[in-house]
Design a protein around this nucleic acid. Sequence first.
DNA 1: CAGGTAGTTTGCGATAGCGCAAAACGGACC
DNA 2: GGTCCGTTTTGCGCTATCGCAAACTACCTG
Lengths: 236, 236
Amino acid sequence: MAKVDTSLVAHLPLFAGVTPDALDEILREARSARYPKNSAIFEQGADAQSFFLLLHGHVRAAKTTPTGEQIVVRYVSPGETFGLAMAIGAARYPATAMAVDDSVALIWPTSAWPRLVERFPALAANTLQTVGTRLQESHTRILEMSTQQVEQRVAHALLRLAKQSGRKLDHGIEIDFPISRQDIAQMTGTTLHTVSRILSGWESQGLVESGRQRIILRDPHRIVVLAERNADSGAT
Amino acid sequence: MAKVDTSLVAHLPLFAGVTPDALDEILREARSARYPKNSAIFEQGADAQSFFLLLHGHVRAAKTTPTGEQIVVRYVSPGETFGLAMAIGAARYPATAMAVDDSVALIWPTSAWPRLVERFPALAANTLQTVGTRLQESHTRILEMSTQQVEQRVAHALLRLAKQSGRKLDHGIEIDFPISRQDIAQMTGTTLHTVSRILSGWESQGLVESGRQRIILRDPHRIVVLAERNADSGAT
DNA sequence: CAGGTAGTTTGCGATAGCGCAAAACGGACC
DNA sequence: GGTCCGTTTTGCGCTATCGCAAACTACCTG
């Protein structure tokens, strides 16, 4: 089993308060794997045999309804964990994970979790923190879906993506993994048609520049204004 | 400080794997308080000085936008914790908690949490479990808001309330705390008007019986059917 | 028991956004 | 360099749901 370089992960929130020796021991239980762009990492409903720490790339977690509609739960960035079904005592994955870019992740067998937590209680505390934060974000998303119009929700979604995975350009911020209109629709609870219309509108105003699975925020500041504007304070 | 009866709480998930002695020690750090119906327990944005375990009654957690709109995050039932801001490392409460019925809760100072977790790691693991479950539920709610029509969402919401806090009647299930049309609207991302129309419709079909802050599911089974029917499989 | 307040019902327009359809576009692969 | 497939754009009609307004009703209070 290839040795994982501790220095790459030691600073992550997951390992806060874990001694180097302990970290070494934790990493010895992991293996790493490479996932090519567009490959599935696990499927919703499958046995949760592993949990993951993303090292490189980007992963999309999506939930599917019985009728086949999907929503994007989140995009995972390097340094974040995913597939933590055991954290909620679930035997099966509640969502599907797919690499949207060539990606590399550390993988632990789910069965190792109870033992690791027992030996290193900080792991549970740290994981609680990140899961709690995600719960928060989830509630914010529900609030937005309940109270805002589609345009504002799309604005918020893009700003969040830019913050989380934005690559700074000379003039603007580019979301640095491939993302389609459909993906954005699935993050905001709308349709790809509506997203397309909105982006077209923004493009003609110089707010964004976008193409096939590619979005650049050309004027983040004005997008922030859009995002915060409440529904009725609009055009004259 | 009044002694809390351990036998009342020993079986709760929060204390799974905690020895009676340890439980005793944990409870010694808590006090209990009574909250009359419609009184605020804490306000969104206030310093998170305490966390809570509900013993009796029902508590509504709601989040408010800058513009004053509200959503109901959840209803807390006896045996559940709330106000766990520290779990996510937040210094302020992210929502407002209000007793919807005369309620009693155990209260720990937030400052006690790190010490308790250190002495009793099972607390962190157990809390992780419940927070994880809530995250799951949150995602389900987002999925519903994204893919279902208002009527289905209301059906799901009522069924969930009935399961969580339903009182079985001779013929039907009554939600056993006061809940308004507005509350249901805030759980499902719609308006009280639309909820009222939907309930009126259901009432005329004998699905529910309802009045001022009171709802009885008279025919849960048919409501399940409504909830699961997808949008286009409707009337002829 | 009268009056007031908070919750509920209902009608009636207005509209944001959906759903369908078709065309344009851009890459990737042969 | 041509072909093919997935993505994006755009038009157009439709409708679920909102928003406002007004009337109604149940309960609480004095």
